[in-house]
């Protein structure tokens, strides 16, 4: 049993036991064993192709300038937010989180969108991107999805507009803008229209 089940109580244990007793039909195993798996075919050109790809990647890493744009930061943070990350401060009201973020010398969200200010946040932490430290505050939504607000120091992304600009990648709906105190990058799984409402 994994660590994720440490909080099992008697009801959970009973339900899990009942599930474990749910037996598949007798003939299912036989039907599955009758399937014939395809074998992996050796690819004669596999190694030369892999070597050529490796040379190309190394060349790109060495000679192509690194993109310092908003989209590069969004790509990095998209992957981070998909990971099993932890929040440093949780269960505290927004005012407390902002006090803590101030002590970390990162933007504390003085001008967060009014709609978000009214929500009890899940928590916050400091994140870094290419050596730049930023604040991350996560807000829950009624649908169970989170709205992640990342705040960099003002001027980190000079190209940002002054009002939220919405966009999307494969994993996230996003918004980005800059105000007098900070540069904002926002990520969420809520749909674009709902995200717009959160930022309104």
């Amino acid at each position: 049993m994994s660590d994720s089940h440490k909080d099992f109580d008697p009801t959970d244990a009973k339900i899990a036991d009942l599930f474990a007793g749910l037996e598949p039909p007798a003939d299912l195993r036989r039907r599955l064993m009758a399937l014939t798996p395809e074998k992996r075919r050796p690819i004669w050109w596999g190694w030369p192709l892999a070597c050529a790809a490796a040379v190309l990647v190394v060349t790109c890493l060495l000679f192509v300038p690194r993109d310092a744009s908003v989209s590069a930061a969004q790509t990095h943070l998209s992957a981070f937010l998909q990971s099993d990350f932890e929040l440093t401060v949780t269960g505290e009201p927004l005012a407390r989180l902002r006090t803590w973020l101030d002590t970390q010398n990162v933007p504390s969200g003085a001008d967060l969108p009014a709609h978000l200010v009214g929500i009890q946040p899940e928590g916050c932490r400091v994140v870094t991107w290419r050596g730049r430290r930023a604040a991350l505050i996560c807000f829950p939504t009624a649908s169970g999805e989170l709205v992640h607000v990342v705040m960099f120091a003002k001027g980190t992304f000079p190209e940002l507009p002054t009002s939220p600009q919405l966009s999307a990648n494969r994993a996230w709906n996003m918004a980005s803008w800059s105000d007098a105190n900070a540069d904002f990058l926002v990520f969420s799984k809520v749909d674009i229209e709902n995200l717009r409402r959160f930022l309104g």
């Binding site: 089940h5 339900i15 899990a16 474990a20 937010l81 169970g144 989170l146």
Partner: peptide, 25 residues
Amino acid sequence: YYLKEHSYREIADILDVPIGTVMSR
């Protein structure tokens, strides 16, 4: 969760949602 063989991380991967969403759901 009740199958007892998946961590929160694995459930999040299977359902293609963040781990925080798994926990709140």
